[in-house]
Amino acid sequence: MDVTLHLAQDPDADALLGRSPLALLVGMLLDQQIPMEWAFNGPATIARRMGTDGLDAHEIVAFEPETFARLLADKPAVHRYPGSMAKRIQQLCQYLVEHYDGDAEAIWRDVDSGQELLNRLEELPGFGKQKAQIFLALLGKQLGVRPKGWREAAGPYGEPKSFRSVADITGPESLAKVRAHKQEMKAAAKAARAAKSSGR
Rank of each mutant, 00 (worst) to 15 (best):
Ser162Leu: 01
Glu159Ala: 15
Lys129Gln: 14
Glu122Arg: 15
Ala153Trp: 01
Tyr157Trp: 14
Gly158Arg: 04
Pro147Lys: 12
Gln115Lys: 13
Phe163Ala: 10
Ala154Asn: 07
Asn119Leu: 09
Gly144Pro: 10
Gly144Met: 07
Lys131Tyr: 00
Pro160Asn: 13
Ser113Ile: 11
Phe163Asn: 13
Gln115Asp: 15
Phe127Leu: 07
Trp108Pro: 07
Ser162Lys: 01
Ile107Phe: 07
Ile107Ala: 09
Ile134Tyr: 11
Ser165Met: 04
Leu139Ser: 04
Ala137Thr: 00
Gly144Trp: 06
Ala154Ile: 02
Gln115Phe: 05
Val145His: 09
Trp108Asn: 07
Gly155Cys: 05
Gly114Thr: 09
Asp110Met: 05
Ile107Val: 14
Arg109Pro: 11
Val111Pro: 05
Pro160Asp: 13
Arg164Pro: 00
Gln133Asp: 04
Gln142Phe: 00
Glu116Tyr: 10
Arg109Asn: 02
Arg151Val: 13
Arg151Lys: 11
Gly158Gln: 04
Ile107Leu: 15
Glu116His: 06
Ala153Gly: 06
Lys148Ile: 12
Val145Ser: 04
Trp108Ser: 10
Leu136Gln: 03
Ala132Thr: 01
Leu143Cys: 14
Pro160Arg: 10
Arg164Phe: 11
Glu159Val: 11
Ala154Arg: 07
Pro160Ile: 07
Lys148Trp: 11
Glu152Asn: 06
Ala106Asn: 12
Leu138Lys: 04
Arg151Gln: 15
Pro156Thr: 03
Ser165Lys: 01
Leu136Val: 10
Leu143Glu: 09
Lys131Ala: 13
Gln142Lys: 08
Lys129Pro: 00
Ala132Lys: 05
Leu117Pro: 09
Ala132Leu: 09
Gly149Glu: 03
Ile107Lys: 01
Leu136His: 07
Gly149Phe: 09
Leu117Gln: 08
Val111Gly: 00
Ser162His: 03
Asp112Ala: 15
Tyr157Cys: 06
Val111Met: 06
Ser113Leu: 06
Gly149Gln: 12
Ala137Met: 01
Leu118Ile: 12
Gly158Pro: 08
Leu139Thr: 10
Glu123Tyr: 07
Ala137Glu: 03
Ala153Arg: 03
Ala154Gly: 02
Gly114Asn: 13
Glu116Gln: 15
Tyr157Gly: 00
Gly155Lys: 02
Leu139Val: 05
Leu138Gln: 02
Glu159His: 12
Pro125Val: 07
Trp150Ser: 06
Ala153Phe: 08
Glu116Asp: 12
